[in-house]
Nucleic acid binder design. Structure first.
Lengths: 248, 248
DNA sequence: CGGAACGTTGACTGTCATCAATCTCTGTGG
DNA sequence: CCACAGAGATTGATGACAGTCAACGTTCCG
């Protein structure tokens, strides 16, 4: 819980380039428990957050009651308050145990100003996240709940799934309510759709919340935006494991 | 229609700073008719577009049939393909007669690299657009069709409205189908909601497509995200005309 | 004078949200 | 060890809202 001063990265062993590691000298490491919130309001001294491990969600409330998860943030993602609309209770919340670097906005800008290649990485990263936000608009604007859930499962599989002999397995890092609020459907409806998927053998769920997707092909066919999801979330997976070919 | 080499800006007369004017030396001016498309696919030589006048929409298709307008772009907005998700038929379309500057990506980056204050403006502008995209997620994820239409009318009023004695007037630059696809509702439903608004005296529509909003207060009350819409779209309006106080 | 595109309206249908009851899982305290 | 409470998930019944289809009206073209 106590923030530490970030140390230099351990020398990489077969790890791809980590341009965001440049912030390690000015960042404060924060280890967040599930549910921990990070304020994004303008009142607070502004910081930029860089996700290192885990999963964070950007959420807000509409008219004080209805909740919406606007974005999911994975490792390497950057969160800055200027990209967050001024909605009530807009905040960044850790969905699972996570590690985040908190970088003062001034240091963030100073570093970006001094390093052209870092600047390029940041620009690309932010554009990528913007692209994901736009895809999410298309998803919740046009898809049925089944299609949304299929797209979400593909996203999860690509981001945190591990390919095995029986399919792709992972532990969904969000509660049912979180998933429902992310996909903009009712939690009850989500439960129904999930049950339907289970009955059709599209997903298997064991106790302890593990999810198994035995048939990537069918899942792909269920999601009209599967190609785009793979393009935006699949880069990590395809590097990690060739067995994702069912999805990609 | 014929692209011209951009000329230097005329000396400003009481006009606020225009950091994007820096691109005038390398930009190609494009005057677009209603419906003209700009490719954003990777195949094409990439360009960055800067909106100068008019209104552009970013659209895509889902499974070849359903259309979604992802974003609206107003003057000063920047459109680059890296912010656009890889969906079928993703394209930038002029909703009305517009003027756009087409800047080669290489020039765009070179200029940004050479000028720290321009870089700051660009970063702010892109963050602002990202913020609007996130607000749109909240809108189509959580609002009823009435609430969506109210929010849209507020956005239009702030962006292109002119305050007069009878309220705020403007000519909606989108067809009904466009508006419906932007708000992610059916065009028939939109027509019904609009009729309801007319019956309640919330909007008046004359022939020639002019729209009049006599009662900004009621409209505000109908939109749960009115505050955020005003914050993200109202800066131009409040400078232009104090009569927008009904909305802000 | 057609014809096309767009908008409006009504009737019907289907999906999804709401409400409520039940069940599972987890952690706590006796 | 068991009982209990509370949160979250599941499932059914029900109703409202919005999408679909169809018919008709309007406007603007050639």
């Amino acid at each position: 819980m106590a923030p530490n001063r970030a140390k230099a990265l351990p020398s990489a062993i077969g790890v791809e380039a980590d341009p965001l590691g440049a912030f390690c000298t000015t960042a404060t490491i924060v280890r967040a428990k599930r549910g921990q919130r990070f304020s994004l309001s303008a009142g607070q001294r502004r910081s930029v957050y860089v996700v290192r491990k885990g999963l964070l969600v950007l959420q807000a409330k509409i008219s004080g009651k209805r909740r919406q998860l606007l974005n999911l943030f994975y490792p390497k993602d950057i969160v800055r308050s200027s990209c967050v609309p001024p909605l009530p209770e807009a905040s960044l919340v850790a969905a699972v145990v996570s590690e985040i670097w908190r970088v003062p906005t001034s240091s963030f800008e100073a570093l970006a100003n001094s390093d052209a290649s870092l600047r390029r990485s940041l620009s690309q990263q932010l554009a990528h996240q913007h692209s994901r936000a736009n895809l999410h608009i298309a998803a919740i604007g046009n898809l049925t709940s089944e299609e949304r859930l299929a797209s979400f499962l593909i996203e999860m599989a690509l981001r945190i799934g591990v390919a095995g002999p029986d399919g792709i397995a992972f532990q969904i890092p969000l509660s049912r309510i979180d998933i429902a609020d992310y996909l903009a459907i009712n939690a009850d409806t989500l439960s129904r759709v999930m049950s339907r998927f289970r009955a059709r053998g599209i997903v298997f769920q064991t106790r302890r919340g593990r999810t198994l997707l035995p048939d990537g092909r069918t899942l792909r066919d269920l999601s009209p935006i599967a190609d785009a999801v793979v393009a935006l979330h699949g880069s990590a997976a395809s590097k990690r494991d060739p067995c994702f070919s069912m999805l990609t």
